[in-house]
Nucleic acid binder design. Structure first.
Lengths: 201, 201
DNA sequence: GAATTTAACGAACGACCGTACTTTTTTTAT
DNA sequence: ATAAAAAAAGTACGGTCGTTCGTTAAATTC
């Protein structure tokens, strides 16, 4: 929710809180996000901040929503201005690179959260699964479009493409964040290119 | 460290503690592992358990060592009994499937820990990076061997292979654990097979 | 500008955290 | 069996956690 002027006072600070929380969560995880620490970061009291959400779970889910919106704005929407098919898929990757480099010092927040909540049932996990499912479906949809355009051969399995496409992004996250491997982006780039050329009609 | 008879009493319970801790950590994460809860699980007092490690960080690192040993015993060593080259790589994957299904209810503990500690510097992260580096190098080494055997073409980049190989395993973890996608193993299998056939000489 | 709703605060809660001590029990070695 | 050593328990401390409550300050509405 990027707004410029002013919504109400409450909505303004809520936005500030969520932006701060997302930045922190993308670096340290959604669970490590503590209300007290977050309050210190935005410069308000613990209880004042808490009042906006009434539970930590709601805060966490709203952070996910905020991140999803960020992702759509920064990655998907710009890509949809590119021509249908392979160019659009390539633009998605290019935007992804920019997204995780600039806005979020800790990489894709969904990747981080995905492995954090992979076995921690609850509302947050359900929420996360929904978001990730949407995201992956958008990749599969891109593959379908590429088929329609005749860029991909007509017998490719779009879900299979999405799996491989996202797996390489997971690898990128791991190699660059944890392993600090300087070749991370090169590895991803060549893997992605080979993936495209394999599916090309 | 799977031993049968008795080591000393201390080593016995330490082993029990680590086994329990690994089971929990592979499901809920290394950080969520708390000493009090762990003590309850193994049926002893918090302080009694604490005495074996003297710090939580040491406990966490020992859990990682324990997991690494498990991995070597269950995945790598059996694979090394297969013929060098592609058969050995295929055996690695087959053993991996068995490993995450049987022993650890929460999937590969390294995958889980990797994303948990990707931006949490410290001894544990260093330790984890070392283990993961070793693991990935063993995959690259397998590719080198496949080249020597003439199974892979001589111009393949072994590190590149390792990246793609591990990325697909990350995807498998995500799809099966979080997304609960019933096709997870199918997606991985076909991706892995395509990977092999691409690199085949 | 007064009335009312909303936002923020400060203090306190019970629970649990990792850790440090001391004491008791159990295991090992003589 | 006895002495020494190792393991386990007990208790307590300072801290942080998420959350609740009552109160004050600010923003919005009329």
């Amino acid at each position: 929710m990027v707004k410029y002027g002013s919504m109400s006072k409450g909505a303004d600070t809520k936005d500030l809180i969520l932006r701060t929380a997302l930045d922190f969560a993308s670096r340290c995880g959604l669970e490590a996000l503590s209300i007290g620490e977050l309050a210190k970061k935005v410069g308000m009291s613990k209880s004042g901040l808490f009042g906006h959400f009434n539970s930590k779970e709601k805060l966490q889910m709203m952070v996910l929503d905020y991140a999803a919106n960020d992702f759509v704005q920064a990655v998907l929407l710009p890509a949809y201005k590119e021509p249908r098919g392979i160019p659009r898929i390539e633009a998605t990757v290019a935007n992804w690179y920019k997204w995780i480099e600039s806005q979020l010092s800790g990489g894709c927040p969904f990747v981080a959260a995905a492995f954090e909540y992979d076995d921690r049932p609850g509302q947050v996990q359900d929420h996360l699964r929904k978001h990730l499912g949407t995201m992956i479906n958008s990749f599969a949809k891109s593959a379908e479009i590429a088929k329609e355009e005749g860029h991909f051969s007509s017998d490719v399995n779009a879900q299979e493409f999405a799996y491989r496409f996202y797996s390489f992004l997971l690898g990128l996250h791991l190699y660059s964040k944890l392993l600090k491997d300087q070749n991370a982006f090169d590895y991803h780039k060549s893997a992605f290119e080979d993936l495209i050329s394999k599916y090309r009609a």
